[in-house]
Amino acid sequence: MTLLRGLRALLDGLYTAGGVLAALCMLGILVMIVLQMLARWTGEVFPGAPEYAGYCMAAASFLAFAHALTRGAHIRVGILVQALGPRALWLAEVWCFGVGAALAWYLTYYAARAASWSWRLNDISQGQDATPLWIPQLAMVAGAGLFALALTDNLAHLLVTGRHRIRAEAIQDRPDR
């Protein structure tokens, strides 16, 4: 039981950590763009700024996938499913998480393969940053893996307890009043 609770805390912590890292990458985009502008205005050079901003963009997206999932931010079309009874709804949810997890693991496998190809082929950024591409692609692998893990986690939860753990917050109204 303690083990399970520990695992639960670990997984939830991982998703949140991914989200926080992603947010830092988002901040990174802003910093890269501002530095590039500052460099241009002052006659300095910041080689590779657009590429770095691009890597931050990819990392911000992938690392946040799992976090966005657990907070119900990823969109689904729920019209048909809503009409189902509890048993059928459960089956539909199992199908969704099953398909989702399968696709996300597929994505993870090929992301890892792409990063290893980048390493083996010595694939280097064509911009002025000349970064070996496997380095920024690691964020893609980690993010995709975390996403697959989160989907699998929810699938397991659904199978065992009958409910998934996604809690969507309706974000329409102002949080502070």
Binding site: Q36, G43, V45, P47, G48, Q126, Q128
Partner: peptide, 24 residues
Amino acid sequence: GVKFRSYNTTTARLAELTGMLPVQ
């Protein structure tokens, strides 16, 4: 000081050698 479009190391180096400002 002219702002020169650089998109790779060669063009960036050319800007440097001519005293232009490489802008990506």
